[in-house]
Amino acid sequence: MYELQEVSKRFGETLALHPLSLRLPTGRTTVLLGPSGCGKSTLVRLLNGLLRPDTGRVLFDGQPLPPEGKALLALRHRVGYALQGGGLFPHLTGEENVTLMAHHLRWSAERTRQRRDTLVELTRFPVEALSRYPAQLSGGQRQRVALMRALMLDPDVLLLDEPLGALDPLVRHELQADLRAIFARLRKTVVLVTHDLAEAGFLGDSILLMRDGRVVQQGPLSELEARPADPFVTHFIQAQRPPPGGGAAA
């Protein structure tokens, strides 16, 4: 679905992303994993044109990403995006957030309603909460609205930047399970950003472990554990394991 060719991005003095070439396979969930500031959020923003690469190019479906104008808007309709905290529009109700684009594209009321109902069922969102404003929703509910909004136009790709970052552990756990079910059911190309190893292993088909703007290793979690490409990989994995003899050991 996506192919990156020697793509790099610089912010002032810092090289946020070193020249990088990679492919993101269609219908698979790729997780961008790494510590804060490793370039994973920069990478995901290059995929829907929120950022433009300084060098190289991003191919979507074999075509270079359009730089601007209607073509870029059309591309974004095919790429759903949700970020940490949801990024919901506070002046619109949950439902209005979800159906905003459908209204703008003049979908019929019937079509909009059907799509909304499908998504409510898919994300297990309480119907009665649709008329609430973001300020009246819980963190988990806000994240589900953001997910519905990203999926409203039935995009080919779903980009999720730390979607579960701001949630408490119980809600987070519940949403992780729901997300995995949703990914499995929709079979979309998903790119998910996280710094949580367990989440990456649980949700991702493939993991890109990043550090300082470079991809350190790419592959399933089992491969990262069995054949670390770098001491950093081992270090990163160990840092997120419960301490030996800790009470939380399974």
Binding site: R76, Y81, G87, F89
Partner: peptide, 13 residues
Amino acid sequence: LEVRESADALGLP
């Protein structure tokens, strides 16, 4: 910022 980014990413003219 996250609201502005969301609006951009939706593809709203």
